[in-house]
Amino acid sequence: MYQGKTLPVLTVLGVILAAWYVFAVVLNTPWQLGVYERSGVTEWSNAQFISDTLNQKRPVLPSAHQVAVEIWNTTVLKAPTSRRSLVFHAWITLSATLLGFTIGTVLGIMLAVGIVHSRAMDKSLMPWIVASQTIPILAIAPMIIVVLNAVGISGVLPKALISTYLSFFPVAVGMVKGFRAPEQIQLDLMHTYAASKAQLFWKLRWPTSLPYLFTSMKIAIAISLVGAIVGELPTGAVAGLGARLLSGSYYGQTVQIWSALFMAAALAAILVSLVGLAQRITEKRMGGAPA
C-alpha cells in the first residue's frame, strides 16, 4: 500500500478536502458575523458558528457537502430534460465538444497527411502551426459566435467550431510526429517490398502513428471541452455548463458555479479516460504487450 499510488493520492486528497473546509470557515466568517449582528445573536458556541458558516445560502466559498448536495439535487432528483437539471446542461456542452472534437481530429489528421507527403506544405505550414499555438485562440470565441449568429448559423455548430479550432492543432502536430516515427530501416524494408505510397501509408505509417494519435486526442478532447464552455459564455447564458457558470456569477449563486465546475471536471475526466480506454483496446488488438 505504501509503495503504490492509492494511499499517497488519498492522503493528498484528504489534505485538500481539510484545507477546503478550513478556508470555507475562514472566508465565510465575516458574512456570518454580520448575520449574527443583524439578528441580535450575541452568544454562540464554536460548533454552532462553524456549522453556520458551512451552511450559508450564498457563501463566499461553499463547503464540499453543499456542492455535493447541489450536484445530487440537480442530476439525480431532476428529470434530465428539465432546464434546471445539470445533466441537461452537461449534455449541451458535451454534444458541442464531441462534434468539434471529431471534426478537429479528422482535420488534424488530414493536415498531417498533407504535411508529411508534401515538402512545400511542411516548410510553409509547420512554422505557422507552431506559432498559432502561442496565440490566445479562445479570445476569438465570442466573435466567432456572434458573427456566425449574424449569418444565421446558431445552435451547436458555432461552439463546435471553436472546439474544432482548438483541437486540430495538437492532433496535427502529434500526427506529423507520428507519421514520421517509422525508422529508416522499416522504410527501407517497405521499399524492398516495392510498396506503393498508399501501402506505405496504411501498412507502416498509420499503425506506427497510433500511440501519437491517442496521446494528442487526449489533449484535444480536454481542450475541446474548454472551447465549448468558453463558447457558451457570449451567447447570453442560454444553456450549457458555460452558461451555468455565467448565470451563477451574475446572480451570486456560488453553489451553482461550483457544481457546474465539478460537473465540467467530471466530464473532462470521463472523456479523457474514454480515449485512454480506446487506446488500450486498440493496442491489445494490434498485439501490443498488455500494459
Binding site: K5, V9, A222, I229, V230, L261, A264, A265, A269
Partner: peptide, 24 residues
Amino acid sequence: FLQRGLLPIGNFVSALPIIGVAPI
C-alpha cells in the same frame, strides 16, 4: 510519498477546464 500523491492529481487537474474558476 507526497510526490506519488501529487503527480497523478496534478496531471488530472491539468486536463480540467480550470478556466471555469474565473467567475469565482
